[in-house]
Design a binder for these strands. Structure first.
Lengths: 344, 344
DNA sequence: TTGAAAGCGCTAACAG
DNA sequence: CTGTTAGCGCTTTCAA
């Protein structure tokens, strides 16, 4: 495989000149540039990325630490991230963690092995200690769908989103509205709970413990999955007499599991029980799920842009963006009962 | 940041010794090993991966070239791949291509920049020229859900799967069975068409041009998506008189779009039109779609295993694995009409 | 066993 | 403008 020396020899110049040509530096006569380019062409030469990385102290790749992504939300996020990273001609290295402890491993590895120039930290909570380490080392990181006061972050306004969802149900006339949430150790889960409670409070409705179920069932990851939603809904349905007439579910995928539970109990949506989800994944439109839309792809793209500017310039100032949400009304909330037959 | 020199100095040994300790080489006295390990500990040292890569000529990361993955099939595949790669303590670099031409770019980059030790080439067709290049350079590659006679590959038996699906419909008594396929320039699409035709032929049924629609509508990627399925089904439904009573759809996600079209025309599934999909993505069970199951996760894992063994040992012999499929009978085919009310 | 030295292939000062 | 040289941080002979 041709090296920079081969090119230099063939072009009859020094390796420094070749390097300059490769990196499109300005101080090079047109003539030599041409010579070098031709030699490169003839030798079918391509710089060795690892050697470049070592010399430049730049890997040109960014790491993405993400919860084990079986979730559709992550797929969309990754789509946005991927696209943007490609635009920057960088590589995307995926680290998906399944258990909380492994997260630490990745962090450490990424930080000390210097495999990446920066990291996108997705939907995962970061400890104060870790945050401090990043800050102190000045290692570029941006949190996505997560938050820490000392780090860059971009996320949706979860409180607002949950508020919107709950309020929508309230406006529709429901007053016994339950909530199915993800695991409470997840940031978005806590925030959505907050929004839910706030909406209840603002409208003179009481929060009932039995009408709130956090999906922290054993070995079901972060609770944001179909199975958890199913289990949680069953639990709500088992309340029988005091069963809620509406429920705000903290993610679409859980909502879909929940809908399945409702159907199995031979109840109708929304007649017997109305449902509003969160995320607006592609699936939601198919099943007619009313939900809160987050600009997922855009979020991924923005995150990459921010990370990139942090990587090649000094950290200027904090960046903590919060994107707006909007409610997408479909059939499961009972708002358009007569417009479409429901998927049941 | 501590380097190997710092460690050596602190431990009072040469850098070669430190290197040996790091790499757990056998010829080292227990005493010095301990000394070195302690120094490493004290300095919180971690070898620089890029430097290692350069010296070792090994990146410890594998590249994954994948069609722009908005598809659920890819998510599952990636899940398997990711898991296995982590087990090998390697990194996964994701290259997702959207247009055919960009695929070439990635191939070239990967091959010549030597960013990865091997590549997983997913659901994409590879030209004879490219295949020859890989073979000649001995660059490790395994095709997943794709095939080339000269390269390692692992995929499902698409012909068999399509055959199974079609045969199932035939056994149910349907004789005018249409097919909705992906874009014909995709390998699986062509294979599935073959299986479909074979099943018809074997059962004395004729193939009708008008009952076959390949999703090569403008700007809809590879056709394996919901929108394409929707459009295709509409086309079939517009046949009115000669409308088929059953259709085999070449992917679940298309099938879901197709089902939507059927519902919008106020027709029932399976009473008016039966549907069988392909893939068995998670979604399929939710909508009650009868489909052909491929062992997606397993496929990803096997692919990584094979790639790894190709990377650290010489190419022994060809590896062209074909995994079996099975049909998962749910409601859309009309086989269990009375078991469950249909999602309609 | 272990240390020293020679790369791995490139970038980036530093002269000229 | 351009060639030379000294690293980047490690692995790996080669001697000792």
């Amino acid at each position: 495989m041709a090296t920079i020396y081969d090119v230099a020899k063939r072009a009859g110049v020094g390796i420094g000149t070749v390097s300059r040509a490769i990196n499109k530096q300005p101080n090079l006569s047109e003539k030599t540039r041409l010579k070098v380019e031709q030699a490169i062409e003839e030798l079918n030469y391509q710089p060795h990325s690892m050697a470049q990385s070592l010399a430049r102290r730049r890997t040109n790749s960014i790491g993405c630490i993400i919860p084990f992504f079986t979730g559709y939300f992550f797929v969309q996020l990754l789509a946005g991230i991927q696209r943007k990273i490609t635009q920057y001609e960088n590589d995307l290295i995926l680290y998906s963690v399944d258990q909380t402890n492994k997260k630490e491993t990745f962090l450490n590895r990424v930080l000390k092995e210097r495999r990446v120039d920066g990291i996108l930290y997705i939907s995962l909570e970061i400890s104060n200690e870790d945050a401090a380490v990043f800050n102190q080392k000045g290692f570029p990181i941006v949190l996505v769908d997560s938050f820490h006061p000392d780090l860059d972050s971009i996320k949706v306004d979860n409180v607002e989103g949950a508020y919107l969802a709950t309020k929508h149900l309230i406006d529709l006339g429901y007053h016994d509205i339950a909530m199915i949430d993800g695991q409470l150790n997840s940031v978005p889960a806590r925030l959505r709970l907050e929004g839910y409670k706030k909406a209840l409070r603002d409208n003179g409705l009481a929060f009932h413990d039995q009408h709130f179920v956090a999906c922290d069932f054993a070995n079901e990851a972060d609770g944001f999955n179909k199975q958890s939603g199913y289990t949680a809904m069953l639990q709500l349905l088992d309340l029988s007499e005091s069963r809620p007439r509406a429920v705000f579910v903290s993610s679409d995928i859980q909502a879909i599991g929940a809908m399945q539970a409702v159907r199995e109990r031979n109840l109708r949506i929304p007649e017997d029980i109305a449902i509003v989800g969160f995320d607006d994944i592609e699936l939601a439109s198919y099943v007619g799920l009313t939900t809160v839309k987050q600009p997922t792809i855009e979020m991924g793209e923005l995150a990459v842009e921010r990370l990139m500017s942090r990587i090649d310039s000094l950290p200027d100032q904090g960046f903590q963006k919060q994107l707006g949400t909007e409610i997408v009304v479909r059939e499961t909330c009972g708002a358009q009962r007569n417009q479409h037959r429901l998927a049941q």
